[in-house]
């Protein structure tokens, strides 16, 4: 989980043009939007694209991503729960 959170920090900084942020200074439990990392609605779209691009996860139609986008930790949890498991054999 912690490794995934650290990876997510770098991917979010890169994809959302937040290179003024120091990954070490980002609290994984702080809100992603408004306070905390200060993301906005455009960033929400970018996060949806990030999930698909790096983790193969498509945001389900009609389902709010708000709980998953609460913090870095909830996002990492969402990824772990929804990432496709490679078929065996």
């Amino acid at each position: 989980m912690e490794t995934l959170i650290e990876t997510l920090k770098l991917q979010i900084i890169d994809e959302l043009n937040l290179d003024h942020l120091d990954p070490a200074g980002i609290d994984p439990d702080a809100p992603l939007f408004n306070e905390g990392m200060g993301l906005d609605s455009i960033d929400a779209l970018a996060l949806v694209m990030l999930l698909e691009k790096y983790y193969g996860i498509k945001a389900p139609k009609g389902e709010s991503m708000k709980p998953a986008f609460a913090s870095l930790r909830t996002l990492a949890t969402y990824i772990q729960e929804h990432q496709a498991v490679p078929a065996e054999g």
Partner: peptide, 9 residues
């Protein structure tokens, strides 16, 4: 194909 809203806006 991953258009990035942070870019295309």
């Amino acid at each position: 194909f991953f258009p990035n809203p942070a870019v295309f806006v």
